[in-house]
Write a protein that binds this DNA or RNA. Structure first.
Lengths: 115, 115
DNA sequence: CGTATACATAACTCAAAGGTTATGTATCAG
DNA sequence: CTGATACATAACCTTTGAGTTATGTATACG
């Protein structure tokens, strides 16, 4: 018997993983930094008042979200941005574009109705 | 003396709140449902195999993220989509658009450089 | 070889997130 | 006033997340 009931451990869907990864200012700052070129973990850690293992964890979160890839160069691990999941997130958001670009229109309609 | 050391309780920045709110499939589904018009909490809860208080909590998360507003109509609480925070999120994401739409270009440049 | 550097992993703490059941509150309907 | 409906809140539990310190591992260097 395999392990009895196991809460199924279902990993969240990709979009949830992406948004969760983005829901942290440190990780967003890391991505911003990587948008101007590759960097090692140490270089990425430098700006933050945080321990090295903390950054290491953040990088792992970003990696599991597919937002970065890591290579190996001597004892450095160069990190590289992969924006593919950001594109997915953007596609999801775009479906709501009408609701913000149209907000003035809807406000106008509301005013019109009130008259 | 007020409470000694208090971890400062700093509320997260708006973008983090927005992304965190979006990092849950139930909440994204609720937003999708609201994109086709207002709905009461009960109507929003119907599709989910989840208790009523659970939905109530999700709605509170969405409300605190500014993604919905709630009115009052008899004993119903009509929910309405407010996409403003989505626009903010979109603006953040757009800064990375070059990294996905331009990926083929950058690959070509890389190949060119390698020659 | 031994040592320094760069990073990963382990073990732990604390708080927050997501769910539950039970109960409270506001509003309508009779 | 009474009861039903729609929702919110409280109290609780379990899992996950973000941080810490301490330790392990891989690579360069003398």
């Amino acid at each position: 018997m395999p392990a009895v009931t196991q809460k199924s451990a279902a990993r969240p869907d990709p979009l949830s993983i992406t948004f969760a990864a983005l829901a942290d200012p440190t990780r967003r700052a890391i991505l911003a930094r990587l948008s101007s070129g590759e960097a090692s973990a140490g270089e990425l850690a430098a700006p933050f008042a945080m321990s090295q293992p903390a950054i290491s964890k953040h990088l792992k979160v970003l990696e599991r979200a597919g937002l970065i890839t890591r290579g190996r160069e001597a004892q450095w691990r160069p990190c590289k941005l992969d924006a593919t999941p950001l594109q997915q997130a953007n596609e999801w958001l775009e479906r709501y574009a009408a609701f913000w670009s149209g907000s003035l229109d809807r406000l106008a309609a509301f005013v019109e109705e009130k008259k």
